[in-house]
Amino acid sequence: MKKITSYSWSILFVTILLGLWEISARLYDKSFLFPSPSAILIRLWELKTELFIHHLPPTALTILIGLSISIMLGSTLAIAMYSKKPIEQAFYPILIASQTIPVIALAPIFVLWFGYSIWSKVAVTVLITFFPITVSVFDGLRSSDRNLRELMLTMGASAKDIFYKLDLPSALPSFFSGLKVAVTLSVIGAAIGEWLGAQAGLGYFSRRMMTQFDSAAVFAPIVLLSAVGIIFFLLVVVLEKHFLQWRNHQ
């Protein structure tokens, strides 16, 4: 019951916002420029086969592959930086600097390298999600308790024991925070990748509809993209709840 009341304010706000949008769109009455929410939903329904069968799967796949690569590479780099100081000193500044590169500007080069295949979109997704994952895992590892580490040493723990039984569990909460950020960014990454060159995908479809002045059909895949982001986010929340059960007992 508490959950419902805690969401009710945001539901109310969104409803008012959508209501205002609907009214103003109807008053303006140029649906090819400014479609109403109801028009978007209707278009979404009309395009359902095309969107769900042809365009949703490649985008979802891009997001999944991109995130998996980011998690693997990011965690590996974070662990390497945590275990060897020279690696940290070599990579940390580069990592920060990489974030000042406008990813969108780099995306065309990926198209050049990887062509119109899925890999150019995956590359954009990885580039955009790698940073939050690496930093969150690294910070998580560094947050492990020094006193607990010494206590484990007095129990005869090896470096390996300390890594698996102390450092990794300590990094988990921070990893999940980073993953939540990365999941939302991955949707953006996949969409940007598709704008630049693709044969299918929600981002690609949205852009194609723009050239046809079908603005309701521009919005329809965006609604889907956002739904995909929310679903992936909730999935992470479920995983987090499962792996961090102890946090409910604080």
Partner: peptide, 10 residues
């Protein structure tokens, strides 16, 4: 140790 230093995740 002085603080109990129990692992909260265990």
């Amino acid at each position: 140790p002085q603080q109990d230093l129990l692992m909260p995740w265990r």
